[in-house]
Nucleic acid binder design. Structure first.
Lengths: 215, 215
DNA sequence: TTTTATTTTTAGTTTTGTCTAAATTTAATT
DNA sequence: AATTAAATTTAGACAAAACTAAAAATAAAA
C-alpha cells in the first residue's frame, strides 16, 4: 500500500463514521485537497485491491480489509501523537502534522513495541481512542460540554475540533484533559456558559462548549 | 526534497567517504538497486537544485548544501536507531530497515527533541557517529581488531559491516559494544586470532576481526 | 415532469521516477 | 595508436498519481 492509498483509506474511514452508507467522491476530494476526478481514479484502484466497495455514482464504503487497514493507520497516528506529547514534550497542537508522516511507517513490530513503551494508552492527546493491535476500539463515554446538565461536575476527556486555534485557546484558559469542569449557569439567549474549571470561574461561548468532551 | 532524492544524496555521501574526488554513476546505481540511466537522470535534477556538482562522465560530488542535507539524513537515521534499540528494545540487527523509513520524516524540531530525549548520543547502536544539529561529527578514535597489537586490552566500539549475519554472529558469541577484548595470539598462516572477550577465550577468523572496531 | 444544477466520471495530459535499448565517451589492452 | 571493453549518457517509453475539460448521471427545482 502506497502512502497515497493509505491517505485515501484513512479519509474514507473518518468520513464513514459520519456517513456510513457511502462516502461521496467530493467529500473525499475535499478532505485530501485534490480533485474529484483523482478520487474516482483512486477508487478504482482501491476497489481492485479489495479495500473499498465502489459502484459508480453510488459512493464508497470500506471492505473488512479496508476497515482494518484504516484502523491500523489511525492506531499508528494516535500512538505517535502520544509519543510526541508524552515523551518528546510537544504540545497537543503541534503533533498532528508530524503524526501524518509517522503513520505511514510500515513495521507492525515497531508499532506494537511503541504501544508497549507508551504503556498501552487508550486515547491520544486529544482524547481520541486508540485502536488496539486487533483493531478494537474501546469506546470512550463522553458528552459535549454544551449538552450537560447544570451544576454537575465532569472532567475533560477530549476535544471534537482539534484545530490549532481551538487547542491554543484551551491552553490559554488552562483547560487540559483531566481538568474538572462544572457548569454554573447557561444563558438562554446564546447558550453562553458560566463554568468553573479547576476551581476557576470562566465564561465560554457555545461554540467552545460544543467542541469539548466531558465525562 | 523527495524521499528518492534524499536516498540518492545519502548514498552519494556514503560513497564520498571512500572516493572523495567523485562518485561513479554505477556505484550509486549499485547501492540503490537501480539502473545507471536512472542515476544520470537524477544527477541532473540534484545538480539543478544545487545539491551535487555533476559533469557528464566525471562523477559527482556533494555541494556544501548537499553535504549538509546528507548529514541531516544520517543524523536522523542514527538517532532513530538509538531510539529503536534503547527505548523500544529492538536488537541491533533489526533496526536498519525501519530507520531507512524514519530518516525521511521531515520535522527538524522532532529530530532535535528526539536527540534530547535520547540524551544526545554520539554513536548509534553499531558504533557509527551521529552528526549533531549543526552537522558536526565527533570523530570516534578506533582501530580494527585485526590491526591491533597482541596482549593489549581494548573495548569494542563499533562494527564495520553491520549486516544481519555478522551482528547475529556477535550476539551468539556475546560480543557487544563495550565488551573488553584482548588479543592473546595471532596465527601467522591465516591471521586467525585467539582473543579473550569479557574474560572468555575465543577463536575468531580474520574476516571477523576485520569488521570489529576497538579502542 | 421537464429543466436546471450538481455531482461524478471519462478522456486525454503532465510530472516524477523508473526502465530498455541504442549511442557516446572514457578507460584498458593489444 | 588502434582496437576492444567498460562505463555513461541519450532517447523514447511506461506506471503512478495527479490535473483539466468535456461528457454523463443523479439530484433538485420549476
Amino acid at each position: 500500500m502506497t502512502i497515497s492509498e493509505e491517505n485515501y483509506i484513512k479519509v474514507i474511514y473518518h468520513l464513514s463514521l459520519v456517513s456510513p452508507k457511502g462516502v461521496n467522491t467530493n467529500a473525499i476530494a475535499g478532505m485530501l485537497d485534490t480533485k474529484a476526478s483523482s478520487v474516482t481514479d483512486m477508487m478504482k484502484k482501491l476497489s481492485d485491491k479489495d479495500l473499498v466497495t465502489y459502484q459508480k455514482y453510488q459512493g464508497v464504503t470500506l471492505t473488512d480489509k479496508g476497515l482494518h487497514s484504516a484502523k491500523m493507520i489511525v492506531r499508528k497516528h494516535r500512538l505517535w501523537e502520544v509519543f510526541l506529547v508524552d515523551k518528546l514534550g510537544f504540545s497537543w497542537d503541534e503533533v498532528h502534522e508530524i503524526a501524518e508522516e509517522l503513520e505511514h511507517i510500515k513495521s507492525e513490530q515497531l508499532i506494537n513495541k511503541l504501544d508497549a513503551f507508551l504503556g498501552f494508552p487508550v486515547a491520544d492527546p486529544h482524547g481520541d481512542p486508540i485502536p488496539d493491535a486487533k483493531g478494537i476500539i474501546k469506546k470512550i463515554e463522553k458528552q459535549l460540554l454544551s449538552e450537560v446538565e447544570i451544576n454537575a461536575s465532569f472532567h475533560c476527556v477530549g476535544v471534537k475540533d482539534s484545530s490549532t486555534d481551538f487547542l491554543k485557546y484551551l491552553d490559554k484558559q488552562k483547560i487540559a484533559l483531566g481538568s474538572v469542569v462544572k457548569v454554573i449557569d447557561k444563558e438562554d439567549f446564546d447558550d453562553t456558559l458560566t463554568v468553573e474549571i479547576d476551581g476557576k470561574r470562566l465564561t465560554i461561548s457555545n461554540k467552545i462548549a460544543n467542541n469539548l468532551y466531558v465525562q
